[in-house]
């Protein structure tokens, strides 16, 4: 299992691995926001938490179909399924996706927050919200990716399937960032965010394994 995780991370970092894809997308969204909505600090600061969260969510969504599609196309997924329990496979794949997108986005977001005049006190809650909330995005996403793995150009279907499941995480995560930015206590939405992530962590490997089993046959 650790070998599989290391392989996925190695594949992600090497050229064409898509490690930079989500981060670059996030960067572009945040850098372009001031051009689109105007540079007034007050307006930017008000929307900063929401835009940062939305950017992170879309960046995670963008890289979802790579979780299984590449291994499916070259036959690696079949070979892995012969040896590795599918539940474990899904867990490791989702974890690798989180490490290369969610965790990286959480580190990057407070820095990019400066571009949107995110108040200084808001950086830590933003980071905490993302690092605790984004595992739900990766695990729900891995489940969605497992569902559409056999379908050519399944990306569109994947986005439609996964978006409604992302709504609670987005609401809670953005609420953490907003309250943090306004100096309000943010422990309740953070706890709910953690609950959503833990729920996804516990359920999605089994749901995803069932989906993979159906896709593989």
């Amino acid at each position: 299992m650790i070998a599989l995780l290391l392989r996925d991370l190695r594949l992600a970092i090497r050229s064409g691995g898509g490690f930079g894809l989500g981060l670059a997308f996030f960067l572009v969204v945040i850098v372009l926001t001031p051009f689109a909505v105007g540079p007034a600090p007050a307006g930017l600061a008000a929307i900063a938490p929401g835009v940062l969260w939305l950017g992170a969510l879309l960046a995670a969504l963008l890289t979802l179909d790579r979780i299984f599609a590449l291994d499916w196309e070259d036959g690696s997924l079949e070979q892995l399924a012969l040896v590795v329990p599918l539940e474990g496979l899904l867990f490791v794949k989702a974890l690798a996706h989180w490490l290369t997108t969610g965790a990286m986005l959480a580190l990057l977001a407070p820095v990019l927050g400066i571009l949107l005049y995110l108040p200084q006190g808001g950086a830590l809650p933003l980071f905490l919200g993302l690092i605790i909330g984004t595992p739900a995005l990766s695990f729900i996403g891995a489940f969605g990716a497992a569902l559409v793995v056999g379908i050519k150009r399944g990306g569109l279907l994947l986005s439609l399937l996964v978006l409604p499941l992302y709504v609670p995480t987005l609401i809670m995560g953005a609420e953490v960032a907003r309250r943090g930015a306004q100096g309000m206590p943010y422990d309740v939405p953070l706890a709910l965010s953690a609950a959503l992530s833990l729920f996804a962590l516990a359920i999605m490997p089994f749901a995803g394994a069932a989906a993979l089993r159906a896709s593989l046959r």
Partner: peptide, 10 residues
Amino acid sequence: AHSDALKATL
């Protein structure tokens, strides 16, 4: 299988 299941970058 038919497919070789190799990765281009490994």
